[in-house]
Each structure stands twice: as structure tokens, then as C-alpha cells.
Nucleic acid binder design. Structure first.
Lengths: 190, 190
DNA sequence: AATTTCATGTAATTCGTTACATGATTCC
DNA sequence: GGAATCATGTAACGAATTACATGAAATT
């Protein structure tokens, strides 16, 4: 019982707080600036999440500086919170590939191990390729002539997903290149 | 109590059944072929939805042809179901603009009035433009230098949304052109 | 005969939202 | 001193999923 709010929001909060301590209101703005193109969290989910993280000891209120009548509650990551964050950042399974969570995982790639980054990017790519396959074969199977709107929707959808696959291909290539040159500064060839 | 499953799934089911009667299993495949690029429904949501629509009298089982031991339950739209579908197709408010529902509304544009189509496309466009605005200003506000992953995420996100806006612009232009030529066949000018 | 795929359904759970309620602080 | 926006929180609900359970039909 009560393991807390969803993993995605948990990661988003812990990841943000890892950078710098923040209070709820500010945190939400940060998140929506960072991820606004993909998703937006509301206060109604954020505050319960903070409460839950606090109860689990993963975050703590920053000391209220004694006398100051605080109307802001600033949270920071605890040691356990940092451990938990690392644990979440190391997850490279489906939970990191899906539409709702991929963007959040990606946003904190700076703190993710190179190997895990690569597995997430590849996982995401094969997830999208499965989707392309599924739709393409289903499309071939449906003999019925589709109306122009349906066709246009299919076309645009396929194109968008194909674009993301190309984007992932570039990122994967970059990651591979980066990991294969641990130290490269002296020019040994011509 | 019990107004039924979400509007999106309801529209998707009624819209599909408007074309041709189907049983649940087949219906799901159709939907996932039609909308697979955007979303996928599971049996766990589809069957309860069918049940609810049946109870509301919006769909009916096709008569089981007497003797045949049916293991398929084929549903078709009732008169009330057609009315309800028209009602849903006429909704041009936010419920038709959002990510989760826009694709479903668009998929049935064939049955939607030209005026409503236009308002949905425009609504969707301004929703996306709001999102672009929000992220852009939030981005300008954050003075902090972002790491390369965050930047790349922002860039890709912005570009994707901008692409969809351009797509919508084309669709809107096409719709406008089409509505302004009610009958154009005889060449009256040179 | 065994396995796969088709087909239907339910219960518990997940993950989040909307709407509401409340008050402090800053801007004009 | 009134309005906007900053700030925190809760209760009720929404919309779908996952996991489970079951069995018929087709394929090998």
C-alpha cells in the first residue's frame, strides 16, 4: 500500500531536485518548461507526490531559517533520495521507452550512465519500429479504400514516427562515437 | 453514476461501428490500425465500453442467426447510437483538440460537418501554438545554461510541434478552399 | 493431440486530472 | 486597498491499463 505516485513524476521530481532545491510551485514551472512539449503536470499530482516522497524520506524540507515566516516549503534531496534517483536512472526497460516516460528519462541523461543511455535509445527505437510495422501491415491487410482524411492521418502519423526514428539513429550514432574515444586529443594520423 | 467509459473510446467505437458492424476483437484491431500511431486501446477498456454502450442502447447485438453457436458477438449501431455519434462529431471544443482525442476526431472527419472540421483544426492549432509560446518564454526565462541533452530534447520537441502546426495550416487552407467553391466545373474565365 | 490465435470478460490498480478551498505576497 | 499571481493542499473522479480467468476455433 501507498508506494506513492507514478514512477515518471517521481523521477521528474527527484531529477529536478538533484540540480537544486526547489519549492512545489517553482518545481512545476521547471518541469513544464523542461517537458512542456511532451506532457504537463498539475499541482494536484505534484503536491501529493512531494508529500509521498517526504514520507519516504527521499526528500526533506530545507531548514526554514528559524524566524522567517515561510510561505514557501523548499525541498532538497536526501542521501536516500539520491540513491533512489540513481536506481531510477539505471532502469533501461520498457518503463523508459514509452511515450509518457521517454522524454523524462532523456531529460536527465546528463546523470545517466553511457551504457544505459544507449540501451534506452535503442529500446525506444525498436518500440517505434514495432509500431511502424504494426500499422504498416495492418494497413496492407485492410483492402478497403480509405477516405482522404484517414489517409492523411496515416501519412502524417507515419512520417512523424519515422522522423523520430531518424532522430534516434543520429543520437545513437553520436553516443557510440563518443564511447569509442575515451581519450582523443593528440592527432596520431596525418 | 455509470455514465460509461471515456468519450474518446466511445467516439472511436461508435465511429467504427458506423461503417460496418463488428465484434470486439476485430474492432480493436481496426482501431489500432487506424490510430496505432497515436494510441492503442486494450481489451480491458474495449469490452467494458461495449457493455456500457449496449446498456445505453447505443449499440445492439446483431441477431445471432438463430442456430449458429455464436462465439462472436457482432455489434451494430442503433438509431440512438447514430444520434449520439452525430452529437460527438459536432463537438468542436477542447475535447477535440487534445493530444489524446484529436486523432480520433480527425479519423472520422469524413462524417463531420465542414464548419466543425475547420473549428477543430483551428482549435488544435492554437492549442499547439500556446504550447510553443509557453515553452519558448519559459526557455528564455531560464538563464541557466542547459546541457546538450536537454537542449536536444527541446529542439526536437519544438521542431515536432512546429511541423504539426505547418501540417494544420495546410489542412486549414485546403478546407477553406474547398468550402469556398460550392460548384466549380464550368470555366467562366479565360 | 498440442499449440496458437481468436474471442470475451472482470477486478484491482495506476496515474493522473479537475474542481475546490485557502491564504500569503506583490504590483498598481 | 484591490487585483493578480504566488503558493499549498485535498477529495472526488476519470480513463484507461494490467493481470487474470476462461474457453472456442483453427493450424500443425
Amino acid at each position: 500500500m501507498a508506494s506513492g505516485q507514478g514512477r515518471v513524476l517521481e523521477l521528474a521530481v527527484l531529477g529536478s531536485l538533484h540540480e537544486t532545491p526547489l519549492h512545489g510551485y517553482e518545481l512545476r514551472k521547471r518541469l513544464n518548461a523542461l517537458l512542456g512539449m511532451f506532457r504537463a503536470f498539475s499541482y494536484g499530482s505534484l503536491y501529493p507526490c512531494l508529500k509521498s516522497l517526504l514520507e519516504q524520506g527521499l526528500i526533506a524540507e530545507e531548514h526554514p531559517t528559524a524566524v522567517t515566516g515561510r510561505s514557501k516549503i523548499v525541498y532538497k534531496l536526501t542521501a536516500e533520495g539520491k540513491e533512489r534517483l540513481q536506481e531510477l536512472l539505471t532502469q533501461a526497460g520498457p518503463s523508459a521507452w514509452e511515450d509518457e516516460s521517454f522524454g523524462v528519462h532523456f531529460a536527465f541523461f546528463r546523470h545517466t550512465e553511457a551504457e544505459v543511455r544507449l540501451r534506452i535509445l535503442e529500446g525506444r527505437r525498436s518500440r517505434l519500429e514495432e509500431r511502424l510495422d504494426g500499422v504498416r501491415t495492418a494497413l496492407a491487410r485492410t483492402r478497403e479504400r480509405l477516405d482522404s482524411y484517414t489517409l492523411e492521418l496515416q501519412r502524417h502519423g507515419l512520417e512523424s514516427v519515422e522522423r523520430e526514428v531518424r532522430w534516434l539513429n543520429e543520437l545513437i550514432a553520436t553516443e557510440r562515437r563518443a564511447s569509442q574515444e575515451p581519450a582523443k586529443d593528440m592527432s596520431s594520423d596525418e
